[in-house]
Design a protein around this nucleic acid. Structure first.
Lengths: 351, 351
DNA sequence: TTGAAAGCGCTAACAA
DNA sequence: TTGTTAGCGCTTTCAA
């Protein structure tokens, strides 16, 4: 009984709608695009015709004349291509953080009718392919997620003249480029003050990778804050923001400094890996070792005990990236405003 | 000294290239599209002109005439919109699994010059918006990631006539629709045989959500296999494929059946949550309780001890989805071939 | 306020 | 093998 509702017929065009409504193509176009200069009667006639025909605008045709793509690219830039044996270990796509960013972007983009293109750049070839794709205006703007400090992409993108927003502050601030970040140093300070406030005296940190701004900033911020609090020589072990990396870093830390009673772990995911190591080594959390994480991701809740952590409003920040981009599209002038969010400390049970 | 290489000039068109090369637009078009019927000399002339002018084809114009978008949509379908307070808890985007799928798709799509549009459907409004977007041919095909069994989207998508591939078998096999899956039941059988082979006799399982095919299949497969092995009454506790859900399910299991000596956990992520619960309750893994997971995701390596698990080749499966789609685009005939991958058991230290 | 008409950049008949 | 030409569906002057 399910009659085929759409035999392979020619799609409905503006012309068809115009005919049904008894007006010109131009008028239909005006109605579709919400122009104010249309008579109310004609407008409703057109709207009915649109409904009756099931018309949906052809984006390609529209793009061709407006020179807008109504889409933006989310570019994920990684240092190098993965190996066959370790397909996605430690890759950005598999980090839950990535998903939160996508969600935040979509929050703003969907209501605006803007599509999100997902693009990956992980070697010179793919980078230049990417840039030439972007140059021809197939997207209106770019959100760049870069995993490493020496990434040439921020520079390349600014040269295309496309509105671009970075997730996290750029390393080389040479070119003026908009970005959205959390105040990493302030976040680290929150952690330092909390640990010291708890009375901990042998405090260490598991840092993120030091070739990433976020890794550097959290470590520097923590060091600076601890120095201000009277401890200028905080021990740090470098991790890589992954769970496995967190476990590994904690093993090293404990081997070299078994006496610690507090640790700031620069990402919740690393903390998730590090906690079991602490238990294996006979430490109770928070009794023997107080732990403060960073991110307030789902990993913080998955920790046992649940993690006291520095909250970074990832979804809001991603939404702000989209907003920044949309505003840049609106205005012709090339402004590059950035946004830095304030972190907060979320108290749970690990410290 | 960095002279602005691209002042806001008019983009290079086919016409420009033709002029530079001293040929017609059509010839340039042929070269660009790799037609064989072009004289070698002219071809090189055109190629040089392309290089000299920095020409990149305008996709909108091409789409308009070819009626191909050279892009496909990755549609993520969730049951309902998230709340403000729990932005992305348990959402598909934040599952590392999602990232692996994206990676596998891109592996095939990138070399083919096909773009990936990321689209989210999480309520009736967004679903119908999505369908009308897709209907007008803005993408050539769809990969659907659906999180729930009663999702109307598979049905809606087949009705659009767009080539579609599902990740995982569809629930209602009413409409013939292509899908890629792992043989879930065979995977569960692998786990059952391994646990029994280890000499475990009080075996239980933490299942996935039973409103998802993957959840159902793994549980059914495990029950069937255990029955064949002489244990028709396996205890099961329903989880939700998340880490927190795994911890919670394990707590319930232990409370009701403290005597278990083996457990099949239907996803590595749940195992990651469940292991610490076992330790807290004084069980050693694998000595007291042998644990087998499912997925062979990074979570399996993050477990301590590393997880013995049923491997599901996610990246390959995603690549196959893209391949299936590409092949459907090539041929006019509406065929809906599917692919079911064989799982393997990866032996590590938890069982 | 509305309509007629001119393209946007490209591909694909069709002719040569 | 190459060039000419006619659109693809839409927006946007320009006139009316």
């Amino acid at each position: 009984m399910t009659a085929d509702p759409a035999p392979p017929t020619r799609p409905v065009t503006l012309e068809d709608v115009a005919q049904v409504a008894g007006v010109s193509r131009a008028t239909v176009s005006r109605v579709i695009n919400g122009a104010q200069t249309v008579d109310a009667a004609l407008r409703t006639a057109v709207e009915q015709a649109v409904a009756a025909t099931g018309y949906v605008p052809n984006r390609a045709a529209r793009s061709l004349v407006t020179r807008r793509a109504d889409s933006i690219a989310l570019v994920v830039s990684e240092r190098e291509q993965r190996t066959v044996s370790e397909p996605f270990v430690g890759r950005m796509f598999t980090d839950p953080h990535f998903g939160r960013i996508v969600g935040g972007l979509l929050d703003v983009l969907r209501p605006a009718g803007i599509q999100l293109l997902l693009m990956l750049a992980d070697d010179d070839a793919s980078r230049s392919q990417l840039v030439s794709f972007l140059r021809q205006g197939h997207v209106d703007g770019v959100v760049l997620l870069s995993s490493h400090a020496d990434d040439p992409l921020p520079e390349l993108l600014t040269r295309t003249g496309l509105p671009t927003v970075l997730a996290g502050r750029p390393t080389r601030s040479a070119a003026p480029i908009a970005y959205v970040d959390v105040d990493q140093q302030a976040g680290a300070r929150l952690a330092a003050e909390h640990l010291v406030g708890l009375g901990r005296r042998r405090i260490a940190t598991l840092s993120g990778p030091l070739d990433m701004p976020a890794g550097q900033d959290r470590l520097n911020g923590f060091r600076t804050a601890m120095a201000a609090l009277g401890d200028p020589d905080v021990v740090s072990v470098e991790g890589d923001f992954t769970q496995a990396g967190g476990a590994e870093a904690m093993k090293r830390l404990l081997a070299e400094h078994p006496g610690i009673d507090g640790v700031f772990i620069a990402s919740d995911l690393m903390a998730l890996g590090a906690l079991p190591v602490l238990y294996r080594e006979g430490r109770r959390v928070p009794e023997d070792v107080a732990v403060v994480g960073f991110d307030d991701s789902s990993a913080a809740l998955a920790c046992d005990p649940q993690l006291t952590t520095v909250r970074q409003p990832v979804e809001e920040m991603a939404a702000e990236m989209a907003g920044l981009l949309l505003r840049q599209l609106g205005e012709a002038g090339r402004s590059t405003p950035s946004a830095v969010f304030r972190p907060t400390l979320v108290l749970r049970h690990s410290a």
